[in-house]
């Protein structure tokens, strides 16, 4: 009985490790195709539009409400120690270091990883990927590489925009509800914010963007047949991207700020 349970556990662990290995090899192959010609600038620009520009509303709305709620929470906490003046700076630091990149990344993962996995998965099951090959076009170069590059470049920009909007969300609550003077709020935000606070969040955004496109393309390319197969690929892409973003966030935070 115990032996069976251990064997099942071992099989699960081996399958998980094999899956991670396959994704790592796929990522390596994607980067290699990104570096070698031919390049597909039209597909890159289209991916940039889909992943970056069209995600702006989702990221913006997430950021404004997060910034506003964060300001309220920090005010509630800091008022216990009569330290309400830290609200602008802590809100800004919290947004740019953690909540901006992580929540922005998760929202983009939900929107983009699912859409890439569904699109590529449908292409797989309708033989469009095979058609690409017969038309002398490598699917990794045509489908994966442009999306990897577009997501890696556009998610940090989304995070940057989200940071600004999130800080403004905090400012709206701070000045409208909590009685802060507008100029003082903005001055405190600006003065206590360091370059690396923002920079680390943008680097996280780039890593999260890469993860999002990688998971979308990987699960799409490995989609099984039929509507159910594409549905499963889409779900797996979002789950894997979200977990990988949270894990990467911890590792990057450890690397940037643990000293």
């Amino acid at each position: 009985m115990i032996a069976h349970a251990l064997a099942a556990l071992g099989r699960g662990a081996l399958a998980a490790l094999a899956g991670i290995g396959r994704i790592a090899l796929y990522a390596g192959s994607g980067v290699a195709h990104l570096l070698r010609p031919p390049y597909y600038p039209r597909e890159f620009l289209q991916a940039l539009l889909q992943i970056g520009w069209l995600s702006l509303p989702v990221v913006g709305l997430t950021a404004v409400f997060t910034g506003a709620a964060l300001a309220l929470q920090i005010y509630a906490g800091s008022s216990r120690f009569s330290a309400e003046s830290v609200v602008p700076s802590i809100t800004a630091i919290g947004m740019v270091r953690e909540l901006g990149p992580v929540l922005g990344g998760l929202m983009v993962a939900a929107r983009v990883a699912s859409s890439i996995a569904a699109e590529v998965g449908t292409m797989k099951v309708t033989e469009q990927i095979d058609a690409l090959v017969t038309l002398s076009t490598h699917p990794m170069k045509y489908l994966t590489a442009p999306r990897l590059l577009a997501a890696t470049l556009s998610v940090p920009i989304l995070v940057g925009v989200g940071d600004i909007i999130g800080i403004m969300g905090g400012w709206m609550v701070g000045t409208g509800r909590l009685g802060f003077n507008s100029t003082t709020y903005l001055k405190n935000t600006w003065e206590y914010l360091e370059f690396w606070d923002v920079g680390s969040g943008l680097v996280k955004g780039a890593a999260f963007g890469f993860i999002i496109a990688l998971m979308g393309c990987y699960y799409g390319m490995n989609s099984e047949r039929g509507a159910q197969g594409v549905g499963r690929a889409t779900k797996s892409a979002v789950v894997a991207a979200s977990i990988a973003i949270l894990a990467a966030n911890y590792l990057l935070t450890e690397a940037f700020f643990s000293a």
Partner: peptide, 21 residues
């Protein structure tokens, strides 16, 4: 060579396999 080889072929797929986008 793969590219030169594939350039000699054309294929009509069962479902058409046209690119939706």
């Amino acid at each position: 060579p793969r590219d030169a080889f594939l350039a000699r072929f054309g294929m009509l797929f069962q479902g058409g396999a046209l690119f939706d986008s």
